[in-house]
Every structure is written in C-alpha cells, then in structure tokens.
Simulated scan of single mutants.
Amino acid sequence: MERGRPPVRQQGLTEGSCHPELCLSPAPAPAVPPFCPVPPAPGAAPGAACAPAVPCRCLLALLTPFTSSPRSSGLVHIKNPHLETMDEDVLYHLDLGTKTHNLPAMFGDIKHGMGIPSVSIMLHELIKLLHHAKCRDVTIIRIGTSGGLGVEAGSVVITDRAVDACFQPRFEQVVLGDVVVRGTDLDGGLVEELLACSKAVPDFPTLVGHTMCTYDFYEGQGRLDGALCSFSNEKKLEYLKRAHDAGVRNIEMESTAFAALCGLCGLRAAVVCVTLLDRLEGDQIRASHEVLHEYQQRPQRLVAAFIRRRLGLCAATGNTQPSSD
C-alpha cells in the first residue's frame, strides 16, 4: 500500500447481491400518479394530468416514463437505512424539508456550483428529494460546458464513459478515512437515444466519446495558464494526446461523481456537454461572448429534442433556435 494513502476498498452493486445493512427493499408502494413538474392547465381539477404543449424546462431531472426500472415500483430508492429513522429530513441546500414541504406535490429548479464537491452535495439532496417526492422512472441528464480534445469548438459530446485523470472508469471517495472506489457506468441505451435525437439538431456536430473528469481546472487539466504550473507545453501535449488515444473527447469536473451516485441509486443518467475549445490547440477560450452563448444552448437543444421525443412531440422542429427572452 502506498505510504500515507488510506486503504482502498471496492464498492458496487451486482445483480442479485444484497448488503444486509443497505437492503431497503420496501413493501409494495401504493399506486401514486407519476410526478410531473409541469402544472395542470388553469381550471383543471386537482390531480388532473398535465399535457404540456412545450418541452419541459427541467433539464436536470427528466421525469419521463420507461418500460422498465431498477425496481418494480419504479420509485427512487435511497441506499441509506438511517433515513427511515429520522423524524424529519431537512434538505438544507435546497431549502426544503419533509415536514415543511409537501414534496410529492412540488418540485423546484435546482442550481449548483462547479466541480465534484458541488455536484455531490446537489445530487445527494436531489436524489433524496426524488425519493421523498415518490418520483418514478427518473432519468437525470447533466448538461454543461467542457474543453474538447481533438474535436472542434462547439461540438456536443455525449459521454459513453466517465473516466478519471488516469483514464480509468472510476470515482474515488474518501469515506471515514478509507478510499472507496465506485464505478462510473452510464446507461448505454440512453446514449444511443440521445445520439439519435441529434438528427433533429443537425446544425452542430454531435459525437459519442469518453469524458475525463478532474478535480481541478488548471493543473489537473494540464493548463499552462494557472497560478501554478510545474510542467512544459511538451509534457502537457503528451498527456493530452495520451488521453485522446484512450478515447477521451472532452474534459470537465463533474461526470465521475455524477455517474457514480446515479448508478448506485439506480437512476438512468447521461452527460451531454458542449466543447468551448480544442485543448490540443490551447488553454484560453477565445470565442466571443455571442458565440459562447450560442454554444451553451446546444446541449439544451439536444436534450429538448430528447424530451420532445419522449413526450411524443417529434413533429416539433428541433433545429429551431431558442428565443433570447
């Protein structure tokens, strides 16, 4: 074992396996209507199903129906037996609680900061929110920006594998002094479905590739323009080319934690990010504000096409530019 490094233990779930302390197999849940963030039409009876005529704006948690789910009830299940003993669960960072709010009847916009710590906090509380709200058959899609690797700026990368800075599909989390290694598998079927939806937005390139997740924006991504830099441009390019050869097509700072948490909680998940530059050509983003603004809308347009397809609104034109409102 490396000196000074905490012991490492593997953690994961295999089909048919069960940890007695983590087994939360519930009694059959009563039938509840699928949760939907879109309110019913004005004047509709309480509990009436909504029929939105436009794609849902919630691009983080896509509450769309599936034919199968990790458990027969389709509900989101928490891998933490301690929650069942709590009198109240306060989702502090979301300003919500199981006693102060009627979570099954409401849903709010979720915003988070940058990097693994922020996305981890947000996901813990979002997943608990989905559980308390009795949401069913949930798909979560992360959309955002990234640095490209051997692809032109403005390309949209659909992640087929989230890897760490050593190009391995893993996420390391220190828990009680031990390094817990978690897998970062994403849903392959969801990747293919998103790629098929890219035909509705043909005015920018969309591709599938590995996404490298780092803990840092500067040294961790081999940038020469940070406050600290201990390597040459040649060493930087050598590293980035090795990443490209390993299948990496973009770099960001959330995907491994996102994939690991969603996977452990049985949620279908995907990562869709636009590239703001090709890191093999430089470190600084040179595009204008107007160009960057249009780039950042591209993942949203692709996921909107996905939502339209799930809602049966395929006739909508996916190539339509969003308004500036």
Rank of each mutant, 00 (worst) to 15 (best):
D160M: 05
R161L: 10
A162H: 06
A162L: 05
A162W: 02
V163Q: 11
D164E: 04
D164C: 10
F167N: 04
F167D: 03
Q168R: 14
P169M: 02
P169S: 05
F171I: 00
F171M: 14
F171P: 15
V175P: 05
L176N: 15
L176V: 01
L176H: 15
V179M: 12
V180R: 15
V180M: 14
V181P: 15
G183W: 10
T184E: 01
D185H: 06
D185A: 12
D185S: 10
L186R: 08
L186V: 06
D187I: 00
G188R: 01
G188T: 11
G188H: 13
G189T: 09
L190R: 09
L194H: 02
A196T: 04
C197G: 13
S198Q: 10
S198H: 09
A200R: 04
D203F: 02
F204C: 00
F204W: 06
P205S: 12
P205I: 13
P205C: 13
V208S: 14
V208W: 14
V208Q: 07
G209M: 04
H210P: 13
H210Y: 15
H210A: 12
C213R: 07
T214F: 04
T214G: 01
Y215E: 00
Y215M: 01
F217Q: 02
Y218N: 13
Y218E: 08
G220C: 04
G220H: 13
G220A: 08
Q221K: 14
Q221G: 14
R223N: 07
L224M: 11
D225H: 01
D225P: 00
A227E: 14
L228S: 01
S232Q: 05
N233V: 03
N233A: 11
E234H: 05
K235G: 08
K235R: 12
K236V: 13
L237Y: 05
L237D: 06
E238G: 11
E238F: 09
E238I: 03
Y239A: 00
Y239Q: 05
Y239F: 07
L240C: 11
L240K: 14
L240I: 06
L240E: 00
L240G: 14
K241D: 07
R242P: 03
A243K: 03
H244S: 10
D245A: 08
A246V: 13
G247C: 06
V248K: 01
R249F: 07
I251R: 03
M253E: 06
E254A: 09
T256R: 11
F258H: 04
F258A: 03
A259N: 08
A260K: 10
L261I: 08
G263S: 13
G266E: 01
G266L: 02
L267I: 07
L267F: 07
R268Q: 06
R268H: 14
A269Q: 00
A270C: 14
V274C: 08
T275N: 12
L277W: 07
L277H: 09
D278H: 13
R279I: 15
L280T: 13
